[in-house]
């Protein structure tokens, strides 16, 4: 579905990503892990069209994404759940969700949008209760649900998630991860950026470890969880037992 070759991204003169290559197959959950400043969020911003200064090749369903901006990416089925959620705080939960379907409402898919709104509200029932409430008044977990729900309203083929577990209590992280697994079960493809490597690799089919703008390690989720370097750097605990139990 997504193939990236030798990607280099720039913030002015600073090169934030230095030759990353990776691939995402349809229906997979791919985890990108790494420390602060490794280039994980930059990679998502680039794929979602919010960062334009890049070299290399990004192919989405065999089409090059060069020169395309964010609206064109949404149109092609790439949706981003941004770092820090970036909700629209003064607007109601419903208005936030409707904004997620902005491109579709331009195409006048009103009936389908209403149906998807119902599905999102079923996926996160708390949002139904809070429908008229201002997004800024929601708790952290509810805000994250809203951010994911808003991205789902675009009916994406590829969902990009930037640190969805950030600042959440462990039970909420579990809840969010369960939802992501549920989405994968519905055939969605997910590219998940996380500092919480443990949580991300637990649900990922494959993962990439980024350091200083480069992929330094890749493999399936369980192998990475068991990798000594990954454990030392990001986990600090042996997860082989967990993986054996999972398989």
């Amino acid at each position: 579905m997504l193939r990236i070759r030798n990607l280099k991204c720039y913030y002015g003169k600073i090169r934030a990503i230095n030759g990353v290559s990776l691939s995402v197959r349809t229906g997979e959950i791919i985890a990108l892990i790494g420390a602060n400043g490794a280039g994980k969020s930059t990679l998502l911003l680039t794929i979602s069209g919010l960062l334009q200064d890049w070299e290399g090749e990004i192919l989405f369903q065999r089409e090059s994404l060069r020169g395309l901006k964010a609206p064109a990416m949404v149109e092609r089925g790439i949706s981003l759940v941004p770092e820090g959620r970036l909700l629209f705080p003064p607007m109601s939960v419903l208005d936030n969700l409707k904004l997620g379907a902005y491109r579709r409402s331009l195409r006048r898919e009103h009936a389908a949008v209403e149906q998807d709104l119902e599905e999102v509200l079923n996926l996160f029932p708390i949002l139904r209760e809070r429908a008229r409430q201002q997004a800024g008044t929601l708790s952290g977990g509810e805000q994250q649900m809203l951010a994911i729900g808003r991205a789902l309203m675009a009916r994406p083929r590829l969902l990009l998630l930037d640190e969805p577990s950030m600042g959440l209590a462990p039970f909420l992280v579990r809840l969010i991860l369960d939802v992501l697994v549920q989405l994968k079960g519905q055939g969605m493809t997910l590219l998940l950026v996380e500092q919480n490597a443990r949580a991300a690799l637990q649900i990922a089919d494959r993962g990439y470890v980024l350091e200083n703008g480069k992929v330094v390690l890749e493999g399936n989720g369980c192998d990475l969880l068991a990798d000594q370097d990954v454990k030392r750097a990001y986990l600090g605990k042996d997860y082989r037992e967990f993986c054996e139990g999972r398989s």
Partner: peptide
């Protein structure tokens, strides 16, 4: 209103 709150988030919505 979305542009007012965050232009980047608005762009991410398409």
């Amino acid at each position: 209103r979305a542009i007012h709150d965050s232009e980047r988030a608005a762009a991410a919505m398409g």
